[in-house]
């Protein structure tokens, strides 16, 4: 995408953030509001400067390139992690982590099924051992975990 177009979208997003942040923080009592209110205003001003600057300069070179396929894969990865986080509280650590490993490798294009399952099992086992069994860090309870 062209730099100036991206910058305009960014500036618009920042203005929205600063308005939301301003309207929320305005209602805070006295001292609590000083900092956030002033920061929201500064953010708004800076965003306007960015907006004006990108309109004047119109830098045509590409800010970044992102193909449709790439965008899709990012969305899928985000969805996978979000799904994992949701499952974590219900399925527990071991099962959801195994699924995450399988899911991630599949999304990234790994094709050897057996290797995938073995790697997933081993990685989950090793990470679980390191965190929970050796260091004693609590992880979400799982059907497979020792009570």
């Amino acid at each position: 995408m062209k730099t100036w177009k991206v910058d305009i979208i960014l500036a618009a997003a920042l203005i929205v953030i600063s308005v939301v942040s301003f309207s929320d923080s305005r209602n805070y009592p006295d001292i609590a509001s000083h900092f956030p209110v002033r920061l929201s205003i500064v953010l708004g001003i800076l965003a306007l400067v960015l907006l004006v600057k990108s309109l004047i300069k119109r830098r045509e070179e590409a800010m970044f390139t992102l193909t449709g396929e790439q965008f899709r894969v990012i969305v899928v990865v985000v969805a996978a992690v979000a799904l994992y986080t949701t499952l974590l509280g219900h399925l527990g650590y071991l099962s959801s982590s195994f699924l995450l490993m399988i899911g991630m490798m599949t999304i990234l294009g790994f094709r050897k099924k057996t290797v995938m399952v073995v790697t997933a099992l081993c990685t989950v086992a090793v990470v679980y051992a390191a965190f929970n069994l050796i260091l004693g860090v609590p992880l979400p309870q799982d059907f497979f975990m020792a009570k």
Binding site: A125, V126, Y128, A129, L133, M145, K147
Partner: peptide, 19 residues
């Protein structure tokens, strides 16, 4: 080694429970 380790971990995990 990795396979052995993970089998061991799974066994530990499975047998530890059950009160």
């Amino acid at each position: 080694f990795g396979t052995a380790l993970c089998v061991a971990v799974i066994i530990v995990a499975l047998t530890g429970g059950g009160a």
